[in-house]
Design a binder for these strands. Structure first.
Lengths: 178, 178
DNA sequence: CTAGATGCAAACGTTTTGCACCCCG
DNA sequence: CGGGGTGCAAAACGTTTGCATCTAG
């Protein structure tokens, strides 16, 4: 996001917060800046090391609390990519109706928009007797290029197509040991 | 699910497991029966008390491990309803292409199917250069009936439209206490 | 007999919370 | 100076794992 838009976003946040009687502290500003500057999907934990580097360190608790505020303000949206992975997406501010395609080969996330999908979702919702408030379409798919050519413009062997939620094994002491 | 279909499902599970060199133990059978008998969405934790009642108690570890096996066998699917809530849905066996609408008023989950949506998803996926493997459409919506008439056939005040992930407070001892 | 399965409890990663203190307005 | 905000560390949660034991085939 360019400097111009970022300024606008910070202003918007400040206004929304003020309207709720909340302060826009330097921590909240640093966090908001970080989140919208690169407009990447992120996990709350990801933000901690990023904030440690510069001088604007923010505690874990504040990070979680601020994210919640931004979600409640409609500036940030939670998305789910399966496997219990919980990500936040700052891009709904600029493209309010986009959806996500996740490449099962490289776990790359591709954002796309389609007006027909949106119309159809509204239709279905109304037909069921509801008024739509939020819609999320997630498509998991495999990359044709990778399958046919053995390579994929998104493919990075580093994050190779694997299981989310990895745990680091550790020394373990059994209580029932003989 | 009727007794007939349940028998078929158990047979299917037994076959798939056998083909992978896995056993269909009494724990796995009890679990599979429970899951597909009522075809309700569930969290792994939900199953523990249900299994304690009858004689077929199964440990937490086995529950998680078996659920994983069922997912890998394509008999069970994980769905996500937002708020980090991770549910499992046994109904994809009978309606492989259904989607979910969640009522924001009462958190009721309505399953629906729409052939057009499916075609369109395939279109979009191919246009992006991918082959679809799995699709999930989640619509959050508010119930018209409730808004207009103040009542909703799905509305239960008990599970009143609120925040997922509640925590039970507890006694806490502060280290920094004076 | 033996590979696979189970149960237990410990540990993990993530998220929430109580509380003392801080600071902005 | 007061009410909202922060940081810390301690829970709480949901899930995974090592290991000893058990069991189905």
């Amino acid at each position: 996001m360019d400097q111009q838009s970022l300024k606008a976003v910070l202003g918007q946040a400040r206004t929304i917060f003020a309207s709720k009687g909340l302060r826009f502290t330097k921590q909240r500003e640093a966090l908001t800046t970080l989140i919208f500057r690169n407009s990447d999907h992120f996990r709350p934990e990801d933000l901690i090391p990023l904030l440690r580097k510069s001088d604007g360190a923010v505690s874990r608790a504040t990070i979680y609390r601020t994210i919640l505020l931004l979600v409640e303000s409609g500036m940030l949206r939670e998305i789910s990519l399966g496997g219990g992975e919980r990500l936040y997406d700052p891009n709904f501010l600029q493209s309010p109706h986009h959806n996500h395609l996740i490449c099962v080969d490289c776990r790359e996330i591709i954002e796309f928009e389609d007006p027909n999908i949106d119309v159809m979702q509204n239709c279905i919702t109304r037909r069921l007797g509801f008024s739509p408030t939020q819609k999320a379409l997630r498509i998991e798919a495999s990359c044709d290029r990778l399958r046919l050519l053995g390579t994929c413009k998104n493919f990075k062997s580093s994050k190779a197509a694997k299981s989310p939620r990895k745990r680091t094994p550790s020394v373990r002491s059994s209580t029932r040991a003989s």
